[in-house]
């Protein structure tokens, strides 16, 4: 049976925990704002890039299309890029991404495909290494500042796998930031490049002039597009992470509050029971005299 002092200590420690989760929630909320702005600012660039590539892809078809756009024709070697956060305490955020990737990987393995994995973010690596340690070729940790310079080495690593013939299809797993309460684990095909067929033809039917040639532009554009896609997914991930952490910490703070109330009630009952017992003992003692 816990003594009154034990209970006081327990309430104190829950209160301390609540203070921490509350602080983490506020920090996450502040960082979320910035991460969200960054993700939203990056969207126009990625969207323009996609529409430009869609326009170009219409013109360059058939056998002379760049391999990054059309694929190698084989689907045997798969490269899975799993992008998660570096840190936890964010509910099921990392687990959801890892689970989506794991389902995809086991489906591919069941078909007898060759799978290789690149992870971005420490948590994704930790979760996947248990099962697929031999398949992870490279893992990246997140940087403080997410910009093109950070995304470039990742894109280079993917391109190298691709050019060396170890990957035919590249799929990126990340969490799309829909809103503060909703982040959706998403699989995005990187190679062959995803071309949005529905993009409106902005040329108005007129013939485009290309400088240098269409093929040359696509050649430089596609690797760059890869970098930009990775960067935008990283930024989405980052915003999603803080949103998930904020709501996780909000829940934790509320749970701690409920726990403190329940404990305080129990503590007061016990204290009263003890006082009552003491009184009875005194009265009984006085009567016996």
């Amino acid at each position: 049976m816990a003594s009154l002092k034990d209970m006081r200590n327990q309430i104190g420690s829950v209160k301390a925990t609540q203070k921490i989760t509350k602080a983490m929630q506020m920090v996450a909320a502040a960082k979320l704002k910035r991460a969200q702005d960054a993700a939203e600012n990056a969207r126009p660039y990625a969207a323009r890039m996609a529409s430009v590539i869609a326009n170009l892809a219409k013109g360059v078809g058939g056998d002379d299309a760049p391999k990054l756009l059309a694929g190698t024709g084989s689907t045997h070697n798969h490269l899975i890029v799993v992008s998660t956060a570096d840190r936890g305490l964010c509910g099921g955020f990392n687990t959801q991404i890892a689970r989506a990737a794991r389902e995809h990987i086991s489906a591919l393995l069941a078909e007898g495909k060759n799978v290789r994995i690149i992870t971005i973010g420490r948590k994704g690596y930790d979760q996947l290494k248990r099962q697929y340690a031999d398949k992870i070729v490279q893992s990246f940790e997140l940087a403080k500042v997410l910009n093109l310079d950070y995304a470039q080495p990742i894109a280079d690593a993917i391109l190298k796998e691709y050019e060396d013939g170890r990957a035919d299809v590249v799929t990126l797993f990340f969490s799309q930031f829909k809103s503060v309460i909703s982040q959706v684990p998403t699989a995005k095909p990187l190679i062959p490049a995803q071309v949005d067929e529905t993009v409106a033809d902005a040329s108005g039917g007129a013939v485009y002039t290309y400088e240098p040639s269409e093929e040359d532009i696509l050649e430089t554009l596609l690797p760059r597009n890869l970098t930009v896609q990775i960067l935008s997914s990283l930024l989405e991930n980052n915003a999603g992470f803080y949103a998930a952490q904020m709501s996780a910490m909000d829940n934790a703070t509320r749970n701690a509050g409920e726990m403190i109330n329940a404990l305080t009630l129990k503590y007061n009952r016990k204290r009263q029971a003890q006082i009552t017992t003491e009184l009875i003992e005194i009265i009984a003692g006085a009567e016996a005299l």
């Binding site: 170009l56 007129a206 485009y208 002039t209 290309y210 400088e211 240098p212 040359d216 532009i217």
Partner: peptide, 18 residues
Amino acid sequence: GSEGEFGVLVNHAPFMTT
């Protein structure tokens, strides 16, 4: 442009360059 500096006014013909 990668093949020379260019100026664009309104109603320019469709054109793309690195």
